[in-house]
Simulated scan of single mutants.
Amino acid sequence: MAYSYKNLFFDLDDTLWAFSENAHDTFEEMYFKYHYDRYFYSFEHYYKIYQDRNLELWAEYGDGRITKEDLNRQRFLYPLEAVGVADAALAKAFSDDFFSVIPTKSKLMPFAKEVLDYLSGKYRLYILSNGFQELQCHKMHSAGIAHYFKKVILSDDIGVLKPWPEIFHFALSATQSELKDSLMIGDSWDNDITGAKNVGMHQVFYNVNGKTDLPFRPTYHITNLKDLMQIL
């Protein structure tokens, strides 16, 4: 081990909790429950429209151009409007149901519990996530990983998202951690890796999507969470 770390800051979604799988499953359930097959050619047709607009809206939210309420209203309403269905009440019912179901999902990324078992006896573990307060802790409890973490730091806590420096400094302060012995672990190049690097924190890039065009070399680069057991 090249460095002596004490504090490990984990992203949650698609780093530990399998957000992409859990979200896909929940959206598919809601799609058929609310009979969206009346309006879309297939679930894949609906989900593609949703995902494309969702990415744009999250970028706007991250830049402070829209509120959390705007984000959640628009991303569920937009797919219906895109196919000529102006039904805000239907979108709201779908949204409310979605948010009640998704945090009950429990799929984790491969080897997540095994790795957390290994690390929890050696380091102080924290969550540093852009997710919403009403969802993240529920998701962790559903997946059986909440007990590994000493503190959960969320963008909701201060109204600032990764990769902005303020949330990293807030996380260090809230956990009484020092930059020199802290490590950020995440799957988002922009939010987790670039954000951490910009404040001088070492990083582990969990490259779940096979990203190849890396603008700089992260401190560590892994493709499997088990690789952390070799690094730390």
Rank of each mutant, 00 (worst) to 15 (best):
R65M: 15
L12I: 12
L161V: 04
N224I: 00
F216L: 10
V101R: 15
D156M: 05
Y78T: 14
D11E: 05
C137Y: 15
A2G: 02
Y78S: 12
A23D: 11
T219M: 07
Q203F: 02
I222Q: 08
I127Q: 02
F205N: 02
N207K: 11
D156P: 01
G186W: 06
E28S: 05
S120E: 14
G131E: 08
H45I: 06
H141S: 11
K162M: 11
A18E: 15
G200H: 09
Y148R: 06
T175V: 07
V115T: 15
A2R: 03
L232C: 14
E56D: 00
S182L: 06
V208Q: 14
H45P: 07
V115N: 04
Y61Q: 07
I167A: 01
A171E: 06
Y78P: 04
D25L: 13
E60S: 13
H141Y: 11
H147P: 00
L128A: 07
T15E: 02
D97Y: 09
D70T: 12
F43K: 10
S120T: 15
S4C: 11
Q74D: 13
V204A: 01
F94H: 14
D156E: 11
D192T: 13
E178F: 03
H169I: 09
D213V: 13
T67I: 10
R217A: 12
T219N: 07
Y39S: 10
L125R: 07
Y118E: 12
G144H: 11
A2M: 10
G186H: 09
F76T: 05
T67Y: 09
F32L: 12
F149G: 03
F94G: 04
L12Y: 07
L119F: 05
M1I: 15
Y47I: 00
L225T: 12
P79L: 02
L228I: 13
Y39T: 09
H35L: 04
I231T: 04
P165D: 06
E114Y: 01
D181H: 02
H35P: 05
H138G: 00
L154T: 04
Y126E: 10
L128S: 03
H169A: 07
I49T: 11
E44V: 11
L225N: 09
K139M: 03
P103C: 07
S42K: 09
Y123E: 08
T212Y: 03
P163R: 02
G121H: 06
L232S: 06
S155Q: 02
D117K: 08
I185K: 02
L8S: 01
D227R: 14
V83G: 08
A89Q: 13
H45A: 12
D187T: 10
G200F: 08
V83A: 10
Y3G: 00
M30S: 10
L232A: 13
